[in-house]
Design a protein around this nucleic acid. Sequence first.
DNA 1: GTGAAAGCGCTAACAA
DNA 2: TTGTTAGCGCTTTCAC
Lengths: 351, 351
Amino acid sequence: MAQKVTIRDIAEKTGTSVTSVHRAIYGGKGISQKLREKILFEVERSNYQMDEAASMLRRRQFRITVLLPEAAGQERFYFRGLWDGIYKGTRELQKNKVEVTFVETKHGVSRMAEDLERLYDETDESLNGLVTVCDDAESSSWLQRFMKRGTRVALIDRGVEIENLCCCMEVSSRDMGNLAVHMMRFLTGREKEGMLVLINGPETRFSYRVYADTVEKRVREQLPNLEMTVLDGYDIERGPEELERLLGKGNVRGVIASCARGTYWACETLQRLQMADPPHLVGADVFEELTPFFENGILEATVYQSHREHGEKALRILYDSLVNPYAAAERTGVPAIPVGLILRENYKYYL
Amino acid sequence: MAQKVTIRDIAEKTGTSVTSVHRAIYGGKGISQKLREKILFEVERSNYQMDEAASMLRRRQFRITVLLPEAAGQERFYFRGLWDGIYKGTRELQKNKVEVTFVETKHGVSRMAEDLERLYDETDESLNGLVTVCDDAESSSWLQRFMKRGTRVALIDRGVEIENLCCCMEVSSRDMGNLAVHMMRFLTGREKEGMLVLINGPETRFSYRVYADTVEKRVREQLPNLEMTVLDGYDIERGPEELERLLGKGNVRGVIASCARGTYWACETLQRLQMADPPHLVGADVFEELTPFFENGILEATVYQSHREHGEKALRILYDSLVNPYAAAERTGVPAIPVGLILRENYKYYL
DNA sequence: GTGAAAGCGCTAACAA
DNA sequence: TTGTTAGCGCTTTCAC
């Protein structure tokens, strides 16, 4: 094995000191542009890689805050898994010098801006990283302030466009929509006539819009004899009522739900109605509350990108970019989390 | 945050030296039984956790060898993914002080014993860890020798019973079999009459025996009108011929393949025959060669536990047990790798 | 069988 | 802006 290049080798080669090398690579200030360039050139040339162990040993803790809705109410299906992933990631980081603070907000995604504002006032530039969600312009401008102050930001999906993020987890709505329709075709058969109900999240969100478009297109191709109707999965009051009304017509062959909460109330509704010949149901996500429906067959399949992995990966990427900002700059995109198809036989692996 | 307990604290509390504490925790020899117990008691009491960063900084490299069949011939479908996982795991370990040596054997799993023997003679007790497979008694006795010499052994599935292993990855044949049948029921419908062909691996192997039992039982329950026939997936000469002969009878409704190579030749056979009304095919695993069959619909689904994850995890667990033998002793079982159901829409994520 | 002491490569405090 | 230096907690060498 080739002898390891150390910060010291770089210092000697460039005729400077280890401190300068450190500053060139890592710190933002306290070094002249000229010296920095000279050092970084040598770093590049000699293919220097920081020794994380040594680095960790000496440096003081990084501080990261995770600000996400608590896993309660209708948000619980989605955010429980996400928080689990955050906790898991934190556990794995605990031997590294990081202090992760968890803030569970009370008002769901829609009022995130208030919580971001509060966090901004309660913290200062000593906050190195922030993991959160952002669904609207106001939240987005708070994130800008955090970043200007020197805090790196990692987002969990559902994003508005924002510059300079450390990372943003992406969901593959297109693949998920296609998979759901494909599965539905297996269940109903291609020739079936009647109605297909899509229970979708709010189309103000990019990912749900893509989902609906994909499903609509695919149904036309694959299930041409099914007429599609869309319900709002977030309308807990009227959604189930509407679904019940449609089911009363007697020709609903299939139900596809693209959001966790919609999947849940669709299951509940079908359970309650105890129909002789219920429609096939393909839902989204995997969470504890779905267990009985997987078991009794009301829910035949769901499509899933692990929330846990989303949370874990966001935290991990943020941490890595803090530890090694130099390498982080040239890191490639976020690796995609697999889209899974979940049935009674394998949902346990994803709980 | 509570102040961290260091090896030094333990030394002071027990009135000994840091060296002795180190030896008590880590090394096997050079310390009296009495002193070791006293120290370990204090370690326990104060909930000491080794600082991996500091540990890594000073110690010399661990040496691990991975001895597995090369990804060639019929073994390629299975072992390519496995090797990928090994490489990925190695990459992740590269900042830790480990030297991983790869040995790709030429004769597949069946003649592993010879390769183990050669490796045994070429190495000595400075080999800290070994990742391999073991399918027969002779290989098993070589592994015993390695372990007696101080090498920790991690196995990739397919195991014979062996004591004192560092770990052995397990496949969930039962869940996979059930999932395959469930999928087949979706594809054929419950009432279909005719024949179901199971292309299985050699039943001398535990996991394939379980698979066949599971499928048989489940087919009786779920697809009572299908009569099951089993073919040997490893018989590349006669397997496809046999399948073709059965297909000629005209009443084969479904084919389930439980092994990678069987899945592949089943696809090829169906492709070649260009039947007007081909049987449904549910296979196993995901690998590049299946791409065209996923795309053209010959292969409608496969059941899969990621080989890559298997390889990666085996290496990781072995390394962890080397770094921290004290904690490793009380570590719990190997976490299960999810069983996935793969269709045209999501196979890409698993390649 | 036991302990003292020298670093591993880096970061941060301090000095210039 | 730059350099010198003192450790971080551990493993290893060497002396007893």
